[in-house]
Design a protein around this nucleic acid. Structure first.
Lengths: 262, 262
DNA sequence: CTCCTTTAGGTATCTAGACGAGTGGGCGAG
DNA sequence: CTCGCCCACTCGTCTAGATACCTAAAGGAG
């Protein structure tokens, strides 16, 4: 017995209740979990599995599609099917908007990524005035027109996050917030300079599968969900002065919050 | 033209770069987004789409499997393929562990769900002593043996959350925390009675696709991610006194946090 | 040595058909 | 009228094979 590519795998029972393609997926999954196939390593090809199990090619592909849906493997056309490596994650701490982080010349994202030794980029900047959607309008206390700032964040060339900030036009129009580069400390620093002292933020977090547009923008592999975060910033008067709608590749993030127990 | 079941759908271009099954999925997705098919409504059957588009059945099934992966539709054997209804969501506010919520006789989950008009249940209770995993041990400050409390939460009969609490054995052994029913206010109230006044919580949030075991436990439809939340409770001495590992059906939850801007 | 072509081995897509199995309505027996 | 069976419709699984296209390495032309 040489080290056959399918050496770790057993057989399937066609008479079992469990469908053959699920049995094959189970065996591959277990082999991956046990480290028989390591991260980035190539799995046996479709043809090899067809031979090994004595099933048709569609059945093998069906198995692969299960594992892809679980985000365990990814297929590369012409090369093979590989165990998906777990990418480095970015931790978002709940104090990331603390005032003390707001004095540097660069954005929080750049500073943080540099510190972590990654290569950060910000991309597809768009700043324009537009009509607020129903949801944004509600969150901003019925603002009708807003300034929208959209950008994409990349880490080592990989898109990880797409964010859109919305501010009521009566606050943002004509200020540096309406410029592509909002200056040191970002828009929160500018808001405070404009007299809107920030009081607190509210963050709503959901997770779901991405839309096709999000798959494209974030270059998501199949089986990777997104984290959808909607943050509303309130000033000390209780007015909502900004809503930031962020979609993150879930495999690239861990969010971290600290809560008082009082 | 009567109201054919496929009346809203166009044609496909086999010469297009975009694969036929993707084109079909696109058309169905758009029809759903536009409300041509409503929540819970049945889509055209495979056979009808085969006739309409003039493709083979595998191609149509391929389209359906895309939409299933996106969590947009679900198939019911013998009945058809249906637009997946968006279930009611449970909002988790960041003050849900505030001391003022800790005096009632029932658990926070029960109280909250009752208030929202849902029928809550707690299930598969397991309380036992065990060896801590590496991760849990680290989070609990190198505790080796722990008390583990596992339970599943259901809303209107649907499982929505599976949670496991771990406490250092030297704190929990022999106390009411080791009983199936920890009493009014839950284990946090008991911890404080034991002299561990709670100072703050730390929550880590991830999103990912569920493992097969999680699919089973939470009866998840395909295309539904899970939110994985790990909460560590610290007492005023800075000691980690509990770790709670929670897996939630992502389509049933919105997490909400309030952050100070200081 | 460099660059292009060929080729072997991958996956992507599609067809056509077969059988299995869950669901629900119609219809006949009682 | 009611109950139970049958059947039509539906999705689930599997086979067998064809074509297309991608990738990498080998080999030949310059």
């Amino acid at each position: 017995m040489t080290s056959l590519p399918t050496g770790h795998l057993g057989e399937v029972d066609p008479t079992s209740d469990r469908a053959v393609f699920r049995q094959i997926a189970d065996q591959l999954r277990e082999a991956i979990d046990r480290g028989r196939f390591r991260e980035g390593e190539k799995l046996p090809s479709e043809a090899e599995l067809v031979d090994h199990y004595g099933v048709s090619r569609m059945t093998v592909r069906n198995s692969f599609s299960i594992l892809q849906g679980e985000g365990l493997v990814h297929a590369e056309h012409g090369k093979g099917v590989f165990v998906r490596p777990r990418p480095p994650v970015r931790r978002l701490a709940s104090d990331r908007f603390a005032r003390r982080h707001r004095d540097q010349g660069k954005s929080a994202f750049i500073v943080e990524a540099d510190a972590a030794g990654s290569h950060p980029q910000v991309d597809s900047l768009e700043v324009k005035e537009e009509k607020a959607t129903q949801d944004i309008s509600t969150r901003l206390g019925s603002a009708r027109k807003v300034l929208a700032r959209r950008r994409r964040y990349l880490l080592d060339g990989r898109p990880v996050e797409f964010a859109a900030s919305y501010l009521p036009l009566d606050i943002a129009r004509g200020t540096q917030i309406a410029e592509p580069n909002p200056g040191p400390g970002g828009i929160y620093a500018r808001l405070e300079e404009l007299g809107h002292r920030l009081d607190h933020f509210e963050e709503e977090i959901r997770a779901r599968m991405p839309s096709p547009a999000e798959v494209k923008t974030l270059r998501l592999a199949s089986g990777v969900p997104v984290i959808h975060l909607i943050r509303t910033a309130y000033d000390t008067e209780g007015r909502a002065v900004e809503v930031c709608d962020t979609v993150m590749a879930a495999d690239a993030y861990v969010l971290s919050y600290q809560l008082p127990a009082t």
